[in-house]
Design a protein around this nucleic acid. Structure first.
Lengths: 203, 203
DNA sequence: CGGGCCTCCTGACAAATGTCATCTCCGGTC
DNA sequence: GACCGGAGATGACATTTGTCAGGAGGCCCG
């Protein structure tokens, strides 16, 4: 049986190299390409057509989820999985929506990762139980689309006037949205609201 | 010549294991202990007395810098170095103040890391050039001690009243400090001021 | 077709925040 | 002793935000 062709994408050279070395020990896995950024990962995937793409969540250029989205469109036969350092519930949701087959934290062992690659290649799925529990307990976002959008624009502490301009809304509307979002999140002001929404993956 | 005894501390099992495997290939390096958290790293260091401790910056329990501080007190012969994913200028400053001998991002190659371990063991020092440039260009904090303290308390978006209470200051004083801090940082309000100060490592 | 929800808006009001001038007290320094 | 900067405070003021009430239009669903 031919080995599983794997693409590794992670901007941390240290980890990517080490990972490649460890996976090379498994004789049914073959690392055919490595990438250090989102765009590079896409280019490598086009060139080498891997069976499974192992993507880090945070990479320069484009993050793992957007790479997965592009891959799904361009190379439907390529299964994708995300490996990440800090998994927040929102990331998991976005990843699953993008058709990612597995989502695991970097606290897993290399042995386990190799198993996951095989599972994913065989068509299986996997989600880290702890992250899944977090995502479920976080529940669905109570925010409407616009509330979330405005909250996101408020992310870097910009004043209302700037948010209104960037969202092409009136200042009053922005304040109303922020107020209702803060109420829904149980926050005292929009800044803590932003923080809470981020923690729960709602922005 | 006896090999360099190395302690590896990183909460990401994947990376730690992979790293251990790669360093094992170097015949002058010997990984004598691994740890997945700050306290565990300290315990391991006490038990195995490594020559060099390679510490991740972000670990559960205690971060790399505080582990380095404790190690410096308990095992002065043990050299410490920090390896991190996202290096902010402030981290670098804190690390150097804690007596860390080397500070590198995880984007370095394993080969390079092995060299760094040797350098550190030989008494040398190393700082990633890019991080060093950032730290220098960020310059020294223009904030007074109290301004920085108040700014830090403002970090999670708490209202002035709460900051004043936690700092045992009058609300007016808090507002004055926040105002002057924001002016010094060129921010429009305290929230962006907090963000800027964090980016530059001044809090 | 009526009700409910979302999207926008306006206007008004209260509370929080930013800004400024000014004061005292203290420790250092010339 | 005079001067300066920082810590800490007060009071006044303008601006920004948060909150509430309400209105108009649109969409979907029973």
């Amino acid at each position: 049986m031919s080995p599983v062709r794997v693409l590794l994408a992670d901007d941390e050279h240290l980890i990517r190299g080490a990972l490649a070395a460890l996976l090379a020990l498994e004789d049914d896995l073959l690392v055919v390409a490595e990438a250090a950024s989102g765009p590079e990962a896409l280019a490598m995937a086009r060139a080498h057509r891997p069976d499974v793409a192992v993507l880090d969540l945070q990479m320069p250029g484009a993050d793992g989820v957007s790479v997965a989205t592009s891959l799904r469109a361009e190379l439907p036969d390529c299964r994708t999985m995300i490996v990440t350092s800090h998994g927040r519930p929102g990331h998991l949701k976005r990843a699953l929506a993008a058709g990612v087959r597995a989502f695991a934290p970097k606290t897993v062992s290399a042995q386990r990762l190799a198993e996951l690659i095989r599972t994913v290649h065989a068509g299986g799925r996997y989600v880290d139980p702890e992250l899944a529990a977090d995502a479920i307990s976080a529940g669905d976002s109570p925010l409407t689309a616009r509330e979330a959008e405005v909250l996101e624009l408020a992310g870097d502490g910009a004043p209302i006037a700037e948010i209104a301009e960037r969202a092409s809304l009136s200042q009053g509307t922005v304040r109303n949205y922020l107020s209702s979002a803060a109420t829904k999140l149980g926050a005292e002001n929009r800044h803590t609201a932003v923080r809470l929404a981020r923690e729960r993956g709602w922005v």
